[in-house]
Computed example of a mutant assay.
Amino acid sequence: MYHFPRFKAVALVLSLAVSGAHAQDIIKIGYSGPLSGGAALYGKSVLNGMQMAAAEINAAPVEIGGKRYKVEIVALDDKYNPSETGINLQRLVQQHQTAAVLVPHSGGVFAAQASNEKLKVLLLAYTSLPAATERGNKLTVRIPPDFTTYISPFIKAAMSKYGKNVGLAQADHDYAKAWSAAFKPAWEAAGGKVVADNPMSYNKAADFYSGVSRVIQAKPDVLFIGGASEPTALVAKQARELGFKGAFIVLDQAKLDEMAKITGGYSTLEGAVGVMPMSGDDRPDAVAFTTRYRKLNEGKDPSSEVALNYTAVHATIAAMKLAGTVSDATAIRAQMDQAFRKLPGQYNPASVEGLDAKGGAIVNAIVASVENGKLKGQLLRSNAAGQ
């Protein structure tokens, strides 16, 4: 039998020790969202933001508890189906050992909350529904602000210029239902009247003429619309083709810049009120982020989903650093507020200021309106957002 000389054996041991010291473990962050079907564009935008953050983190791998890590995003398609989300959550935790999973739709969030505490996984909930953090789930963080923040300024902008009669032609999924339930009494309390209410299945159709026609027959001054950006744009476009000349109130899931690409510009969306696209945000960190994103994505503009979920991944890794663990979801959740607050501006383009007491994001959001074919913005202070 051949024997290594002693000095060679020592060198080999040292070599293995050095290579082990520089070896990098993997932090896996899960994603369950729509990557096919009518909401695929929305789901891919969310995933793009997560992957952009992971790439930046991996350029200078993080050290936590004496170990060096790289980040991997494990993405599963749930087709916007909550039952698929629940199955995906099990797979992500049991097969991939993810300590955190991001879900970008309310039905999926609520399905995940049925088991995430038992599975001991942090749920990063991309939904503006306040119920996501009001249920007392101790391992949930809500990434965007509470959608009810937008209702009053949306109503004021549309009603003051276009009239008091509104027709509802929004999507029929859980998130749109919640928006509608909060919007209708607020519109009426402001002195308006709901003249039609006809929700439609945005994720299963591309021809909305008959549904929109029923709504505009009631002669509304304003149409309340919204779901994923692509079908929402088609609803607006087809409403114009049917002769509607009023304003649109666009719930925050749909993005005005993505809609404009489908409608052929902002002229079709004249009078629309919605959330300011990231590309229209002129705050310095937002401008810098948009520039970086365009360079990486052939000139494409980032949506607010891209920006907020990009920040969520950076904040999750920062919370792991603060907690000193990559696997203890409870310890990581306990550090998420500080992680958001301490993030450098370059990693926080949407200006998330932290979490409220229930785990909802506090965000300085900007309301946008389309006037004379251009976007005009108004800042909503964070003391109203996310509370």
Rank of each mutant, 00 (worst) to 15 (best):
A157E: 14
A157Y: 02
A157W: 04
A158S: 10
A158M: 02
S160M: 06
K161A: 15
Y162D: 12
Y162N: 12
G163M: 11
K164L: 14
V166L: 13
V166R: 03
V166P: 01
G167N: 12
G167K: 09
Q170L: 14
Q170I: 15
A176V: 00
S180I: 08
S180C: 04
S180T: 15
A181V: 11
A181H: 11
A182E: 12
K184W: 08
P185A: 06
W187Y: 10
G192N: 05
V194N: 07
V194L: 14
V194F: 11
V194Q: 08
A196K: 03
N198W: 00
P199Q: 13
S201R: 11
S201H: 08
Y202L: 15
N203F: 13
N203Y: 14
N203H: 14
K204M: 06
K204T: 12
D207Q: 07
F208A: 02
Y209L: 14
S210W: 01
S210I: 03
R214K: 14
I216K: 10
A218W: 04
A218L: 10
K219S: 04
D221V: 01
V222Y: 00
V222C: 01
L223C: 01
L223F: 00
F224L: 09
I225L: 05
I225V: 15
G226Y: 07
G226V: 12
S229H: 04
P231V: 05
A233S: 12
A233Q: 12
K237C: 02
R240Y: 04
G243S: 04
G243P: 05
K245Q: 15
K245V: 10
G246K: 09
F248S: 03
I249N: 00
I249P: 00
V250M: 07
Q253T: 14
A254V: 10
K255A: 13
K255F: 13
K255E: 15
L256R: 02
D257K: 05
A260M: 12
K261C: 07
Y266W: 08
Y266P: 12
S267G: 13
T268F: 07
E270C: 11
V275P: 01
